[in-house]
Amino acid sequence: MTRAFVFPGQGSQAVGMGQELAQSHAVAREVFQEVDEALSQNLSKLMFEGPIEELTLTENAQPALMAVSMAVVRVLEKDGNMDLAKVAKYVAGHSLGEYSALTAAGALELADAARLLKARGQAMQAAVPVGVGAMAALLGLDIGPVEEVVAEAKEKSTNDEIVVAANDNADGQVVLSGHKGAVEAAIEIATAKGAKKAMLLPVSAPFHCPLMQPAADAMAERLAEVVIAPPRVPLIANVTAGEVSDPDTIRKLLVEQVTGRVRWRESVLYMGEQGVEELVEMGSGKVLSTMVRRINRAMSGSAVGTPADIDAFLAKL
């Protein structure tokens, strides 16, 4: 079985995330402690106990999701004697999950990843005043028709407002991002074009669009200060949907990722073309693993996030 390890993005956070792992595995507790120390914050307590409103804040959700993903990977490696490079052909992550993927593959140190994601969350939140931007999910339209929707919405905009396809997640599942007025106009156009559902998302900022340029600039500065090593297996990058192992290219793509499209559908298709048969989602939730078959029916998906999941996965190896 040829596998890729994939790592979830924002939206997969939940109160209690990682708690069962911490109770059953010392190595998971060590991961959470290291992240807490790197951030000078009791993030693990927030993860275990909530409140959800505080956990969902971008600056908390991003390092928290990475921490749970890394706790799973470390338990597999240290307690399960798994060699990631022998089990996974690629790593990939959805948006912030790209940092989790790089950490799992040894390109980033855990503490550096935690600090980068904290900074990334703060910078993304600060880039656009609340209420100026918005994101919307379009269900039932593929990326081609969505590009037509975006073009029409831009034409109707009176103030050169921005709207782009920010996440190409799967066939019939695309997310828009940009100025609130332009996104709302796009929702109306998409509905008229036959979208099954077109709705604003409860997010705090318009991610993965040009409005995030101040955050991209901030991340360029932060990433320049961090050592990035060649990953033990190639990364499938969000903005190119192709593989990358060169540290300088990885650094550049992480900056571009802040304003660029998450090309997840294309990334999964590429991995399938390279012989990957199963995507294994490491961490909180099952968003990516349940989406797999909508993109490539020949590929399977599984999620590893609890001690029981870890035991079941190790038994398959």
Rank of each mutant, 00 (worst) to 15 (best):
T249A: 15
E277N: 12
P247M: 09
L223C: 12
V233F: 11
R222H: 15
E277Q: 14
V233H: 11
V258G: 02
L254V: 11
R232E: 14
M219L: 15
Q257E: 13
L235A: 08
R265E: 06
G283M: 00
G275F: 00
G283W: 01
W264D: 07
V239E: 06
A224C: 07
E266R: 07
E221M: 04
A220E: 15
V233W: 06
S245T: 14
Q274G: 01
V244A: 13
V276I: 12
A220M: 12
E278S: 12
V258F: 05
L269N: 05
Y270G: 01
A229Y: 10
P231A: 11
L235H: 02
E225C: 01
E273P: 05
E243T: 12
E225M: 10
R232V: 14
R263N: 12
P231I: 07
S267V: 03
R265P: 00
R263W: 05
E278Q: 15
D248T: 13
R222I: 07
Y270W: 11
E225T: 10
R261A: 13
V280C: 11
E225F: 02
T259A: 11
G260F: 05
V244D: 08
S267L: 09
I250P: 02
N238F: 04
M282S: 12
N238P: 08
T259C: 09
L235Q: 03
L254P: 08
R261F: 01
V262R: 00
M271K: 01
I250L: 15
V244F: 07
Q274W: 01
P234Y: 02
Q274L: 05
E273I: 10
N238Q: 09
